[in-house]
Amino acid sequence: MGVVLETVELTKYFGVVKAADGISVRVEEGELVGIIGPNGSGKTTFLNLITGYVRPARGSIWYRGKDITGLSPRVVTRMGIARSFQIPQLYGGLTVLENMLVALAIRAGRSGEFWRPLQEDARLEEAMQTLSEFGLEGAAAQGVSSLAEGERKLLDVALSFALKPRLLLLDEPTSGVSVKDKFEVMDRLVRVLKSSGVTTVFVEHDLDVVMRYAERVLVFQEGRVIADGPPGIVLSDAEVKSAIVGTG
């Protein structure tokens, strides 16, 4: 089992706010790690730093042994790290299916093609298959703007998953999903992720979800990791409990 992701003393300031305060974390291949913490504790910033959306003030980020500090999201994604967003980032003018097809075309490095149609049998098949893994095949022909919030979330995750990354970063994958659907969605998601062996790190507010699915939990507070371990142990720790009161 190799180390897929390692951050070393990752630090980032927004003005005087320390969004990341010397974060040093190591994630092994195949792990399913949850990140929890109060609002503003730096969880999303952590994802932004890893994927190159913002540059750290100090520290470094290593992906499978390579230094990726400061590389742009485009490069980082091509190297094998994909990410989903708190607010789903979709292509609003296209249908669900078209969104997926674009992702697949980009992944294949064929987005520059201008003579063949986007719809190609092989690509279509894979697109529909991936969509059905996420329960979205019925909405394939729908415009993205007409989807329910939970479906938009799922699509966002599905698009990132379709890139066949080695490391998948999910930012609140179940937020916006109705309470009764959350477990169903996560069940499906985790099943897909586990069977494909993708290393997954997900930020989550819902402690029940984290408790049930995460194999390891990182607790963030004010830009620092204050706890790191199996959910059963971490979530019953007094200090952690007081830190995350009000979360979820």
Binding site: Y91, V102, A105, I106, S111, F114, W115, Q119, L159, L163
Partner: peptide, 29 residues
Amino acid sequence: HRLVRSPMGYLLRALRDNEVRVNYMGGWV
């Protein structure tokens, strides 16, 4: 007509809708 239905044609629309997402797919904006 072909261009518009091609991957490049759709990528064009995609980057109009969401440039950030195109970058986050590894696409060239």
